[in-house]
Design a protein around this nucleic acid. Structure first.
Length: 160
DNA sequence: ATACCGGCTAGCC
DNA sequence: GGGCTAGCCGGTA
């Protein structure tokens, strides 16, 4: 079983926790988490060794092997493809994986995204333009992150 | 099997 | 436009 390494990594949105395997990043958590919480999170998902790693060794790709469900993996893949500074709706992602009516299920998938902000679920907003919720810090955090990425938001609504 | 729970949405007042 | 409802769907207990 390949080991899982982890570190607190400086990103444009702050110092987030990231964990990775040889294949890619497999987990992430917001800055407010402490080390034991993140390690606990990793432990309940991975059987193998878990130990600190170096920031310089964080890989570029993502490792979705520990995500349950084909649908979820596909949706997370599609989400990972959203460019910085852009947004998509839950319905967009549903359509992208060939299930145009599964927006609700996409929402659930985003809510349980194990690797924020590497899989940028903060770029997924509601069809009516409202920002929608954000598990890793709430709507306020989501707005803050999108604004930092250059997305135009006025009165809590995405403007295009 | 089956019921329930969500970061949703289209359709109707 | 704004508020509500009834569908929708995949995962989990």
């Amino acid at each position: 079983m390949t080991p899982v390494l982890y570190a607190r990594v400086p990103l444009i949105h702050g110092e987030w926790w990231l964990a990775w395997t040889a294949e890619g990043v497999c987990a992430g958590a917001e800055p407010e988490w402490d080390e034991s919480r993140f390690v606990g999170f990793l432990r309940e998902r991975h059987e193998g060794e878990i130990r600190p790693g170096r920031v310089a060794d964080v890989p570029d790709g993502i490792d979705l092997r520990f995500v349950r469900g084909d649908f979820r993996r596909e949706v997370l893949r599609a989400c990972a493809a959203i460019p910085e500074g852009q947004t998509r709706t839950y319905g967009d992602l549903a359509a992208a994986v060939g299930r145009p009516r599964a927006a609700r299920a996409v929402g659930t998938t985003m809510a349980t995204n194990p690797l924020p902000p590497i899989v940028p679920c903060h770029r997924v907003v509601r069809g009516d333009g409202l920002i929608g919720n954000y598990g890793a810090g709430g709507t306020a955090r989501k707005i803050e992150m999108l604004t930092r990425e250059g997305v135009d938001i006025r009165d809590g609504v995405v403007c295009s």
